[in-house]
Structure formats: C-alpha cells, structure tokens
Design a protein around this nucleic acid. Structure first.
Lengths: 135, 135
DNA sequence: TCAACTGTCATATAGTCCTATGACAGTAAA
DNA sequence: TTTACTGTCATAGGACTATATGACAGTTGA
C-alpha cells in the first residue's frame, strides 16, 4: 500500500509514518485537499496501534502539513512545501551514503555496486510501470 | 573527533556509534588490530553515559567486528565480515532499495540519481584516500 | 433518530534507551 | 604492591515509544 513501516529500523513508527506522509506530499502522490487514510483502518493495515497513527497525524498537524477535522477526517493542507529542493536532495544523499558505506563495509567494489544500483532501478521501474496510476 | 552523535536523529546513540565504528573499519580509518577509544574517555567526549558506549561495543563484539579484552581494551578484529556473500548482498540491496525508493518519492529521475550516486562514491573514495595514515 | 464513521482523550502496562552510580576483576607500569 | 587504567556487571530511575482499551463528541447518511 501507500505506507510501509520497518519495525527493525530502530526509528519510531510514528516518525516513519509522518515522514512518509511528507514524502507523499512532496512527490505529488498526495495533493492539497486529499484525504489521508483514516486513523483506525490505517492502524489496522500497518498492524500498529491507533494511538501511534494518531501521534503521527498530530505531529503533522502541529507542523502545518495536514489538517484534522474530528468527525470528518484528515486532509492535506493547501500550502505544504515542508521540503525545499535543497532539503530533499540532502535527504536523498543521506540514503545514498548509507548504501555506499554499506558497500565499503562489505567490500563491494564500485563497478559491482553500480551494477546492483542499476539492477534495482530496473526492478523498481518495472514495478512502478505496472502500478502506474491513471491521473 | 572520530565519532559524532546526532542526538536529534531519533536513532539510538549506541546504534549510531556502532555504525560509525563499522564505517571507520570499512574506510580504513581503523585497521585490524587497532585499538578503539576506551569506553570511559569516549563516553566523556561524546557526552554520553559509559554504559551507552559499552552497549555499542558489546553489539560490535557480538557481530564479530571487534574484540574486547577486559583490562586491556577493545580492538578491531582481523577478519570482520561475519556475513556470507548472499547475506551481505541482501543487506546491501536493502540499503540500495531505500535510496531508490526515496528517489522515486522525491521524483528524482534515473540519470540524476545515478549522477548523485557517482558523486557520493567519488566523495567517499577521496575521503578514504585522504585519511591514509603514515604507519 | 440511529448507526457507523471520524478524530480525540485518558488510563494502564510493557519495553527500550539512556543516565547515574557503585562495585568487581583483569592488565600494566611505577 | 600500589596505582591507574581497562572492560563488565548490577541496580535504579526517567523519558520515550508503543500497546490495549474504554469513552467521548462531531459528522454523515440511511
């Protein structure tokens, strides 16, 4: 589905979820005014307590990313650009660095690493091509 | 100094430290047989409790990265790749996938992503080359 | 109105992370 | 031996994360 939790990462679940909502907003997967998944169903889907989802949403609301309306639901706010282009690039570089460090640690050389990266890019392109939405 | 902790990251301190030791080993900043900083001084320097440093070291020892000798100190192990080739590749692919997924989220296209990967590879190669020591 | 949904709040429980602190045993050098 | 270092262990407490659960009020549609 739209959100995924890594329970082994050591990173709090509510932060993972909040980050993913921000990414969805940044990437356009969620647009201003769009409803977010309701707390209870999402908690069930992610196999997480409803309080944990509520905490993620509460944080997002306090940061002005979403709007919550008791009785109605949660919606993406109009003017949400929590990430500038620079910040987004920094986020990506952090992820890339972790992979590069792991490659060093595992003594995988540059060519083999780049081959793996291309392989995974192919894999995800095939995958997302299959799930492309009609908007 | 050699290690740095980000107290705002949400990631446990002992995991951050363990990762940095692994990186130091991978990059050559620490070589097999080298002594690691002693627990108490390092804890003081990082402004962290000594138990937290001890926990990081204990994890590294259980993973075969370092060796601890009560009364003497902690030292980088000779052959620190406790993982089989398959397991290592799987670990690496997991890291790569996280970066690829992030790139998708942030709408960074393939060419730009590969350019960033190469840039970071260059960066780390320069860095590990520059930290070569005179012993 | 009634039922089913929405978010919200309060309480209790458990686990982890981190701190603080004292104590112990092994090592090494004066 | 004494002193100062090393890693290790045990205990206690605070903060945070997450769980489980019950209850409440607002919204919506039958």
């Amino acid at each position: 589905m739209m959100f995924q939790i890594d329970f082994k990462s050591g990173k709090p679940v509510y932060l993972q979820l909040a980050d993913q909502v921000r990414y969805a907003a940044a990437s356009g997967a969620l647009r201003p005014g769009d409803p977010l998944p309701s707390i209870r169903p999402l908690a069930e889907e992610l196999r997480v307590n409803r309080n944990t989802v509520a905490k993620a949403y509460a944080e997002l609301e306090s940061q002005g990313v979403i709007e919550t309306a008791p009785g109605k639901g949660c919606f993406l706010k109009e003017n949400n650009s929590p990430f500038t282009k620079q910040v987004r690039q920094k986020l990506l570089i952090t992820e890339i660095d972790e992979a590069v460090v792991m490659a060093h640690h595992l003594q995988v050389d540059r060519d083999r690493f780049l081959a793996l990266v291309n392989e995974r890019l192919d894999y995800f392109e095939r995958k997302s091509g299959a799930t492309k939405r009609d908007d």
